[in-house]
Simulated assay, not measured.
Amino acid sequence: MSSTNNTAVLVLQQPPLNTRCTDWYLRPIAGVSLLLRNLLELNESNLRELFIYIPHCTPAENLLLSKELADPRLPHTPRLLEGKSALKEFLQATNHVKIFHGAFLHSNQVLKTALAEMPIEGNEPTYTTISLTEEEILQWEQPFISSDQTPEKIDASPFPSARLFILQNSRPLEKESDFSWHSKRLIYASGLSNDSFMDRVITRRISNKLTHYFVTTALTPNHITLMSLIIGLGSALLFFQGSFWAILAGAVALQISAWVDCVDGEVARLKFMKSEIGAEFDILCDNIVHISVFFCLGMGLYFETGQGIYKALGAFAVLGNLLSFALLNQNIIKGKAQADSHDAVVPEKKSGEPPEIANRDFTYYLLGFSLFGVSSWFLALTAVGSNIFAGYLVYSRRKQ
């Protein structure tokens, strides 16, 4: 008998209301099919050997489902267990098998907590386990079983090493409207744990609505990052005009760019398309936009007023941003990675480390200053503040 601790079987029962298996399990939730999303979540829980048991699908439906299993986001292609006898033989030959109900939307965060036997407070989703029995296998041959039909007590099991993981305090997918409900829930929760106050109160509310559309398209997170970059550079050109209305229009365009800038990360997390290269590309584009905006705002105010001080302020704002970017680039990438791991504990800050600042929050301040016609005040504050901050970073590094 083989022994492994990272083997899982996802059981796909017959869908309700005579729905075809492919129509149900390939239906998207936030841009990823129910079947693929569950497999990706199980994979991120360090369950690397994945199997699919499909007792009811036709050979044609099995073929369509098999194509979904070849998705490049899965490091290893899951294998199909066709028929009850194949499942029983597999369970008898394998130790420590974890069985999951395919009618629930599983979460790697919840599963990691359950596997680590960490306590759950309140009515948060959690897993309970029961031994798998012959009756359980036979039950899977019956039509779709809802969450309230799970057996409360099961006697001795012929497969003592196989455990059925039952997701509690979570809404199962029992009707078509459940797909929309779970999509909205996932999109709403797609922010970062270290989001700033402005992010939580305003930015994420708007970016979530944009993400609801973008996850249904073929656009990748990098495409969305490029879109944010183009809008941001367009705002810089408006700032370069220097007039009140041009600067105000530029501030509005920059704010839209900042909202779109949130979407790329949300889509990457929702569609399992995160990458270190994508994170670095996102930060690089952010700083290109910021540098362009500060430079063009300074030049625009200079052309509008003829006062050379604005060229100097723009140059100092660019210098402070470049220094801060050079010093914080890797820290920002690591910070985003930690904040993206909602199940992880965010480490306490060491003495001398700079406070976390959402670098897109300044767009709201610039919009406010521009609305009252005092964008020059913002430029002065940025020129001074960014260099003080850069100096603080240099001092902190030398002190360490």
Results as ranks from 00 to 15, higher is better:
residue 179 F to Y: 11
residue 17 L to N: 13
residue 361 D to A: 12
residue 370 S to T: 08
residue 161 S to P: 03
residue 366 L to D: 12
residue 48 R to A: 13
residue 97 V to K: 09
residue 211 T to Q: 08
residue 41 E to R: 00
residue 88 K to H: 08
residue 42 L to S: 00
residue 137 I to R: 07
residue 265 G to H: 02
residue 335 G to A: 13
residue 174 E to N: 11
residue 118 M to P: 04
residue 76 H to N: 11
residue 194 N to I: 12
residue 130 I to W: 01
residue 3 S to E: 10
residue 172 P to I: 05
residue 379 L to P: 03
residue 230 I to P: 01
residue 393 L to T: 02
residue 70 A to P: 13
residue 375 S to D: 03
residue 238 L to W: 01
residue 353 E to K: 00
residue 218 A to G: 14
residue 307 Q to H: 15
residue 31 G to N: 10
residue 119 P to A: 07
residue 343 D to P: 01
residue 186 L to C: 03
residue 117 E to S: 15
residue 198 M to P: 02
residue 307 Q to P: 03
residue 339 A to Q: 06
residue 37 R to P: 00
residue 72 P to Q: 11
residue 185 R to Q: 06
residue 175 K to N: 07
residue 246 A to D: 06
residue 335 G to E: 09
residue 46 N to H: 11
residue 386 S to I: 00
residue 78 P to V: 02
residue 398 R to F: 07
residue 75 P to D: 04
residue 66 S to F: 10
residue 333 I to E: 05
residue 54 I to M: 05
residue 53 Y to S: 02
residue 209 K to Y: 14
residue 137 I to T: 08
residue 140 W to I: 00
residue 349 K to C: 02
residue 307 Q to V: 09
residue 83 G to P: 06
residue 217 T to C: 09
residue 56 H to V: 11
residue 170 S to N: 05
residue 2 S to N: 12
residue 384 V to N: 04
residue 29 I to C: 02
residue 126 T to Q: 11
residue 357 I to C: 09
residue 276 E to P: 08
residue 64 L to M: 06
